[in-house]
């Protein structure tokens, strides 16, 4: 009986070692995915800090935000013909960088419109429905961001 309990004890220990080794192996795989970054963390930080796509996108809105000194509600005009995912992404990023201004696209009429035309960059007055219906350009930031008002 004593021998059996000793055997069980050592079996349990052996299995425990196997579990710990499996976990260490799992972490080794994680390490391999980040190996280059761990090899030169300072260089990686210097290259990538403040250089991510989100932060770069946000620089387009630095000047726009200065225009609105108090929270403003505005409607949103997107690039024509963009995919659903891209359209959602650009809309959400516009709202994120312009908060606390409220960007609305659910048919709530506002006095201001923000156009985020990151491909075409400028409005074509002969084609744009807003410009042909009494709206005018308040400011074109020359980076695809255009503010319209009535």
């Amino acid at each position: 009986m004593v021998y059996i309990s000793y055997i069980l004890l050592y079996l349990r220990r052996a299995l425990c070692v196997v579990i710990l080794c499996a976990m260490a192996w799992q972490q080794w795989n994680t390490f391999l995915r980040y190996q280059e970054r761990f090899a030169s963390p300072i260089q990686y930080t210097k290259q990538n800090y403040d250089n991510d796509s989100g932060t770069r996108y946000g620089t387009r809105f630095t000047e726009v935000k200065k225009m609105f000194t108090s929270p403003t509600r505005m409607n949103y005009v997107a690039e024509v013909g963009e995919t659903y995912v891209l359209s959602e992404g650009h809309f959400a990023l516009t709202q994120y960088y312009l908060a606390p201004n409220l960007i609305l696209r659910n048919n709530v009429p506002c006095d201001t419109i923000i156009c985020n035309l990151y491909n075409t960059l400028h409005l074509d007055p002969s084609l744009d429905v807003h410009l042909q219906n009494g709206w005018h350009i308040v400011k074109d930031f020359n980076n695809g961001i255009i503010i319209l008002a009535k």
Binding site: R37, P41, N48, Y49, G54, T55
Partner: peptide
């Protein structure tokens, strides 16, 4: 380390 590197990649 992973947390730090991912944060540098997507700080927002």
């Amino acid at each position: 380390g992973v947390y730090y590197f991912d944060t540098i990649e997507s700080p927002h």
